[in-house]
Every structure is written in C-alpha cells, then in structure tokens.
Simulated scan of single mutants.
Amino acid sequence: MKKPTNPPQPELLRQLQAYLEQDRFSDQTRLPSERLLAETFGVTRNRIRGSLRKLAAQGVIWRHVGMGTFVGKQPADIGGNGTPGMVPTSPREVMDARVIYEPMLARLAAFNANDNDYREMQLCLDKMAAAPAWPAWASWDGRLHRAIAKASGNKMLLAMFDTLQMYRNRDVFRALDRPFQGIDMASKDHRAVVAAIRERDADGAEAAMRQHILSLRRAAFGD
C-alpha cells in the first residue's frame, strides 16, 4: 500500500478524472471501494471521500448508500431509497434470474457485437487478469457482464440488465460477491464466453455463459 501523500485537492481531482478517462469506465459502472481507491492513489480515505463528493456535485459520478459509487449521472428513477418498483427478493432469486437472462444476452451479443464491444470486453479481461486485489477484479467482472449485455444491441434488454445489477449492488447482495476458490475457473469462463461471441458462435456463447452463472450459483449456495 502506498504511504498517504495527500496531494492538494485540485490535484487529486485531476488524478481521479484522469483515472476514469484512462480506464474508460462505461456509464453506470460501479467504481472500486473508497478503501481501494485510497490505496491506489496513496491518500487517506477522507481525501478520497471529499474528492468523490466534488465529482458527484459535478455530475461525473453518483453515489447511493448501500449500493456504491457509479460513473455518470444518477438515473432519474433512483431516489434516496433505491429504485421505485424494486420488489422484495433474495440473492438466490437474483442468481436464478441471471441463470435465465444472461445466457440469452450472450447469445444476442454473438449476433450483434461490433469492434467497440470486442475492445471493451478485451479491456475487461485484461484488467481482471492484472487486478491486484479482489475488489478490483469484481468491479471489472461487473463491467464485463454489462459490456456483454450492451453488445446484445437491444436497449430494452440492457435497461433490464441494469435493473438486475441494481439489486446485485445492494449491500445484502454484495455480500455474495466475495473471493471464492473458483476465481480461476470464473476467469476461464469469461474468456470462453468472449471467444464464442467473437466467433459469432451464438450457441457456444449461450452455453458458456450459462455454465459460468451456474458455477457462481454453486459457489454462493452450494447447489
């Protein structure tokens, strides 16, 4: 961990903005935790928190207690208590929904993905391979899954995916997003999904994504 240096606030703001631009965070991507950002920039968490508040005031990011910090402007339908219409559910139900939903997104991505989508997916794979710690890996994992959803070419399905992600980003659900022994297998699954999408192999992409989500469910619930 870097020793906190606490550069002047304007300099830290510039560093954070450059970080967002360099890593090409897509809209509505969840950022790493304050602790991880503080370690990355070698500053205290209080300094990071203050800079994030300023970026939020500028509309660069938005924050929600219990969900995290996200790139872009806060969606109009998300208030202080979450998204209106969010129904009571459980982590198992959300995982079951992913088993049904995400393989079909991967299938559509095999038909509709373009060069920009491929670059975004490869960026996510590279960043996960180089991630220094679990929180960074998990953040890029979420971004990869959204990139696949976006590559489906269907804005309605992407919006539905983002709604599903809102549930996953709540504290009670994030408790499941923890290091597990199958992280190497998960990375292998990711590469298989992206490879099938690149090859326009819709059946292969769908099957690889289903295998991946089922593996996550087994890791989380033991079934």
Rank of each mutant, 00 (worst) to 15 (best):
P4L: 00
N6E: 13
L12F: 03
Q15M: 15
L16D: 06
L16E: 04
Q17I: 10
Q22G: 14
R24C: 11
F25R: 06
S26C: 13
P32H: 02
E34M: 12
E34C: 06
L36R: 13
L37D: 01
R47K: 14
R49A: 08
K54R: 13
K54P: 12
A56P: 01
I61L: 06
W62N: 01
R63C: 05
G66V: 00
V71E: 05
K73S: 15
G82S: 04
T83S: 11
T83F: 13
T89H: 03
P91L: 07
V94D: 09
A97S: 05
P103E: 02
A106N: 11
L108G: 05
A110H: 07
F111S: 15
N112K: 15
A113Q: 12
D117T: 06
Y118N: 08
R119L: 14
M121N: 02
D126I: 00
A129W: 01
A133P: 13
A133D: 14
W134V: 02
A149W: 08
A151E: 04
A151C: 05
L157A: 12
L157K: 13
A159Y: 12
F161N: 10
V172W: 06
L176F: 11
L176K: 07
F180N: 15
Q181Y: 12
G182D: 12
I183C: 00
M185G: 14
M185I: 15
H190W: 12
H190K: 08
A195K: 10
R198N: 09
E199D: 14
E206C: 06
A207Q: 10
R210L: 10
Q211E: 13
H212R: 09
L216S: 11
R217W: 04
A219S: 08
F221A: 06
D223G: 12
